[in-house]
Nucleic acid binder design. Sequence first.
DNA 1: TATTGACCTTAACGCTGCGTAAAGGTTTAT
DNA 2: ATAAACCTTTACGCAGCGTTAAGGTCAATA
Lengths: 257, 257
Amino acid sequence: MEYTVQKLARIAGISARALRYYDEIGILKPARINSSGYRIYGKAEVDRLQQILFYKELGVGLDRVREIIDSPSFDSLVALYEHRRQLLDQKIRLEQLINSVDQTITEKEGGRAMRDSEKFAGFKQRLIEENEKKYGQEIREKYGYETVDQSNQALKGMSQEQYKQFEELGQQVLSTLEEAIATGDPGGELAQKTAGLHARWLTISWGNYSREAHAGLAQMYVDDPRFTAFYDEKVQAGATTFLRDAVLIYTGTRFCS
Amino acid sequence: MEYTVQKLARIAGISARALRYYDEIGILKPARINSSGYRIYGKAEVDRLQQILFYKELGVGLDRVREIIDSPSFDSLVALYEHRRQLLDQKIRLEQLINSVDQTITEKEGGRAMRDSEKFAGFKQRLIEENEKKYGQEIREKYGYETVDQSNQALKGMSQEQYKQFEELGQQVLSTLEEAIATGDPGGELAQKTAGLHARWLTISWGNYSREAHAGLAQMYVDDPRFTAFYDEKVQAGATTFLRDAVLIYTGTRFCS
DNA sequence: TATTGACCTTAACGCTGCGTAAAGGTTTAT
DNA sequence: ATAAACCTTTACGCAGCGTTAAGGTCAATA
């Protein structure tokens, strides 16, 4: 039941260097050092390592891991809740990045070089988002969710010109969808372009865009016979399912049905 | 139209140190160095910096940014697609982490200490996920999405004992939902617990869990009169909307309706 | 028994994208 | 003239190890 670094490293699936590092920072010290200076780990250390790796697996930093496993269970729960919040924040940031990349891609695909004004608009957008991140929650806590919802609603009844784009896009979605189905590959370039167009269509109709909602809607299309009828008749049989698959891939949603 | 480091830094919203670093790694060199050794930037450098910051904003690393802006537009599109994929991978990883944290939280809240077998099961789970990450796409490309779907389907018709849990959970969801509504706060502890129970309920019924799908379903509940009727009658009026709000917060979904 | 190969040790640099001194020169305003 | 506000280079620090480098230890084999 005694292990040297490499043996423990192998059963734990990490590197020997990592173990030496854990020793160095004091988060996991060997049970004893043998006469040759070798690190010898025992059962207790295996258990502790298991715990360390478990929390690390959750993406917790080593410092925080130490706090968690060296403190009573009450604290660990709080720490986990806090960690969860941080993960969610990261996720939101990632989603914003993905949306931005999507926008850039569609703009570039349109062959239209970005003009300076748009670049600066991007900067403004960034500022707004930063603001949202910093104060959004505070605002929500102060005024409740309904206010935010309402201000989102306010974005809806905006311009008149968008309606034309909206209609056009709707047609474009249908036509590219038809082409895409011919390729048979919902992960293919055409299908992804279709999903992108569909995303823009949604963006206009909802005033904003979230990939969850996009994926959810695509699934709803399939589940709701009215939508299924619409796409399957406007394009061809199976079109709705194909669109859903394309959208699920586009939004990065894992398989969930 | 000529700027020193700090002036440029101010209009670009970054630090002077960053500019010096960009010079150091050669991604943005000043137009010239004046007689006192000061870095002097011109219009061209402003434009280039704008580009750099734009891509950096998308989360692209500086090395890749350099590749993108120093190559024709074709390459940049490919790079963007690739970058998008990486972001999606990161996002999926984050979601897995969040799910794990959720599980740990519910387990800890249940007051039940994790047994060693479960710890190791977690490790196995990790291995499976790693495998999925490494080879999942390859498999999908080889055998198409349907195979993966089918193997997912296979997970569904599993145990018989789960059905009991499933029924029980359904009742629990309803009862905690009722308590939660009494508090009036969809972000509160009880409401989040309800959402957690609902998540577990889904996990069992679907064989796996994705937070997008969860959020999407919650929204669907509100949109679909059959579901609305179910929850609003089983619990009380407005229960469906409350559950949706709780789930949206639980899943970290931004407001999208 | 000598040698090989598989272990073990410490020490120290490297990676990203800068933040943050430290130690000193330049320009501008008062 | 002097202070304030710039500018410069140099270099350590951050997380979590990976990766040599330079050298001891242990078990088995020729």
